[in-house]
Structure formats: C-alpha cells, structure tokens
Computed example of a mutant assay.
Amino acid sequence: MAVHVKLLAADLLSLAVHYTSRPPSFTRKGKPVSRAEAVGVVVSRERKDKYLSFLVDDGSGCIPCILWLNHQSDRERDLGVAAEMAREEAAAVQLGKLVRVRGRITAYRGVVQITVGDVVVERDPNSEVLHWLDCVRLAKFCYDPPP
C-alpha cells in the first residue's frame, strides 16, 4: 500500500526531481516521495476528451493536477468502472470548490504535478486549515525530524 504524503503546494513544487530513473523520482530533503495529498480551492479547470487538468490553490501556491478520463485496463469491465468514476470525479471539480486531491507525483515538461488517483469535494470549510496544521506537524515531527 502506498502512503500519500500530506504536502503544501510550496513543498510539493519544491521537490527535487531526479530524471536519472524512468519514470522520474522525487525527493524532499533527501527522502523519496512518490504520492501526495493536497487540499485547496480549484482556481483553473480545462477539460479535454482524454483528461481534465486543473489547478488547486492552497494559499502557498498552485498545484497542477491531471485526471485521466480514459483509464487503461486489462479487463474491459474494470475499464468501464474506472472511466465512469473518473468522469464523476471530473464533474465534481468546479471552479471555487474546496477539494482534497490524492495521487502520484509526476513531472510533465519539467513541471511537478499530481496525477490524480481520487479527488473529493470537501464539505467542511475547516478541512483546508486542518490540512495545513497536519502538514506543519508532519513536517516538524516526521518528514524533517531534528538531528
């Protein structure tokens, strides 16, 4: 099971990208990071046939996100379910909505982004502040422990 690291946009966008491996790998202060979770407001949205790209602003920066709508699968039945879920998630991503995004950290044309695994609209207006507090606490005690 992969762990989604709670990160602020400023931290996510400052990850070190290592292009020596395929796909590229990412580190935060020397520690490998492959999946992330972020909470913020959708400030940009562009839908194409195969994907939805959007920006999530958490107050520390804007995180580019991509949600693929044409999932690849070995089983046709799984393909239909995954594609339907992606379309439902894409419909929920609207400008001004507070969302929680989780997914793989990827790079496209040199820009760090989240390839979305799931996105949900947050109903609790406090969730953004609580995410910020979690990020600060985790950075202090887990991600960047004192020497």
Rank of each mutant, 00 (worst) to 15 (best):
V41G: 00
I66V: 13
A9M: 08
L8K: 06
V111Q: 13
V5D: 02
R28M: 14
V121G: 01
V120T: 15
E76F: 15
G80S: 02
R102H: 08
Y51F: 15
V42I: 09
R137S: 00
R47E: 15
L138M: 04
D57F: 03
A16E: 15
R109N: 01
I63R: 01
V5H: 08
W132D: 07
K31W: 14
Q94P: 01
L15T: 04
D124Y: 11
C135K: 01
H4G: 02
H131A: 05
S60Y: 05
S127P: 04
F141I: 03
T20A: 15
C135Y: 07
Y108R: 10
D57V: 00
E76N: 04
Q72K: 11
I63K: 04
W132Q: 06
I114Y: 02
K6T: 10
S25F: 09
K48V: 09
L7M: 12
D58W: 01
G110Q: 10
D134V: 09
L133P: 00
K6C: 06
D118A: 07
P146V: 05
L98G: 06
L133Q: 03
V42M: 03
V136G: 00
A107H: 05
G96Y: 05
D134K: 10
A86F: 05
Q94F: 00
Y108F: 15
H131L: 07
L8Y: 03
N126R: 10
